[in-house]
């Protein structure tokens, strides 16, 4: 099993949701062999396997609720909204649900971070300029998150 940090881009080929893949690819290009990159399309329960990585995991995903489109934020596993989660159907099983289920099973990575890029109400077609403009900042956030995950701060353990 890999002891490298696993970088998981979550998204799709279409619309602003592609930003998770774009940022993950850009960051992986900078980091080379230091990370193992995986790109996922609506991973649902399958994300549990991606979270099973002793080297730690950084997730990158287009999200809603951070603020204006293009806003970038880094969330630790403790700051995901676990209290409001309900496992409805598999169609509604997202990143936060997978992280919470992994936590309940005691099988999540020792260290985890989520880099979220606000996409707002995404439309069809390509990534909007306002979201694409956030890519450099999001890539920098991923690089910091990978470094933090690889060397977890003992005070946060």
């Amino acid at each position: 099993m890999s002891t490298r940090v696993r970088l998981v881009g979550v998204g799709s080929p279409f619309g602003d949701d592609a930003v998770g893949w774009i940022v993950a690819r850009e960051a992986a290009r900078c980091l080379g062999a230091a990370v193992e990159i995986r790109l996922r399309d609506r991973p649902g329960l399958w994300l549990l396997e991606d979270l099973d990585c002793p080297g730690g995991v950084v997730l990158v995903d287009g999200v809603r609720g951070l603020g204006p489109p293009g806003t970038v934020a880094v969330l630790g596993s403790g700051t995901l909204p676990a209290g409001r989660l309900r496992l409805g159907s598999s169609h509604g099983f997202g990143v936060a649900e997978a992280v919470e289920l992994a936590r309940r099973l005691g099988r999540g990575p020792a260290s985890l971070a989520l880099v979220g890029i606000e996409i707002g109400e995404s439309g069809e077609g390509g990534v909007r300029a306002v979201v694409r403009a956030a890519v450099p900042a999001a890539v920098r956030a991923v690089l910091r998150a990978v470094a933090d995950v690889a060397r977890p701060d003992p005070r946060r353990a």
Binding site: L45, L87, L105
Partner: peptide
């Protein structure tokens, strides 16, 4: 129970089996 999060907390072995088979 309310949902599978609770099942996972209380019946961890069964949920692990399920996940392994689904894999």
């Amino acid at each position: 129970l309310d949902d599978a999060f609770e099942v996972a907390r209380i019946h961890r072995r069964e949920v692990e089996r399920c996940l392994a088979l689904r894999a």
